[in-house]
């Protein structure tokens, strides 16, 4: 082998190890740093109270509740829409052009930056419902629609055509086939879509700043929907950038990191669980 080739091979090999090592080190460092700086600040008092100037303390209970409300509200709307759209695409659509247009639209939606969602959400929803969790949730519905649609579509494609034909052969109508054969087959896709959406909702900030606002009040679910409120991510931004409360910011960051970890873990588990069942 010529020297030139040897150098080329060595160089490429070195670069690959270097870059992979760099990526691994980056992940380790980010997680380690945030957890080490954040975990000691996660106290029961922080988790269970709301901010109070009188007592001079910061609590993130309202932000936790707001995050839960916005996740529930968003999923309640986006699931029927996304699953319905996926069913239309795989079960009904005959015209290839229509399918192409819808899929292109979904791709476009998933490429739009969240700050633009924030602006449009402000114009569309906040101007009608006021700056509120509901307006934020509706904005997130548009953002997560492509995700739910795609995961459902993927799992619908794995439902064997023969199942549908069998049901049709027994005289079932289209709706009945969808209800009894197709829908149960796409449970894994819907769950995966749910988990991915939850991850995206928890991590979202730019789209919520102008639609859901950044109040820290403890409300019940229905009153919460109609009031402005910060989610954990928005609260992190406000505490770090506007108020310089880095201890609280790191505590929230650590919580977000752990949630990210759990969400990734559950996507893998769901994939494994359903993958195994299907192979049986």
């Amino acid at each position: 082998m010529s020297t030139k080739r040897k150098i080329y091979i060595g160089l490429m090999q070195g670069l690959m190890y270097l870059c992979t090592g760099l990526t691994a080190a980056l992940v380790l460092f980010l997680f380690g740093y945030v957890l080490i700086k954040g975990i000691p600040n996660v106290t029961w008092e922080l988790l269970s109270t709301k901010p109070s100037y009188l007592a001079n303390r910061i609590g993130i209970l309202p932000d936790i509740l707001n995050t839960i409300y916005i996740v529930i509200a968003t999923l309640l709307v986006v699931l029927p829409l996304g699953v319905g759209a996926a069913i239309y695409l795989t079960e009904y659509a005959q015209n290839k052009k229509v399918v192409e247009v819808i899929e292109y639209a979904a791709e476009t939606l998933s490429g739009i930056p969240s700050i633009i969602y924030g602006l449009v959400g402000m114009l569309l929803f906040s101007n009608n419902f006021g700056t509120s969790i509901l307006a934020g949730a509706l904005t997130l519905v548009i953002m997560n629609l492509p995700t739910v649609m795609r995961t459902t579509q993927e799992s619908l494609k794995t439902v064997p055509q023969s199942y549908r034909e069998g049901a049709f052969g027994l005289g079932a109508g289209k709706w009945r086939v969808i209800r009894t054969v197709v829908l149960p087959g796409c449970v894994d896709g819907v769950i995966t879509g749910c988990i991915l959406s939850i991850g995206r909702i928890i991590g979202e900030s730019a789209a919520l700043l102008f639609t859901a606002g950044y109040a820290h009040a403890v409300n019940g679910f229905f009153k919460g929907l109609r009031s402005p409120g910060a989610t954990l991510t928005v609260a992190l931004y406000v505490y770090a950038k506007e108020e310089g409360e880095f201890a609280v910011a790191f505590a929230i960051a650590a919580i977000l990191m752990i949630l990210t970890l759990l969400i990734n873990l559950s996507t893998t588990l769901v994939g494994k669980y359903f993958g195994k069942r299907r192979n049986v």
Partner: peptide, 9 residues
């Protein structure tokens, strides 16, 4: 994991 970390973090 890297992909899932929120941008504010």
């Amino acid at each position: 994991l890297l992909a899932g970390i929120p941008s504010v973090v």
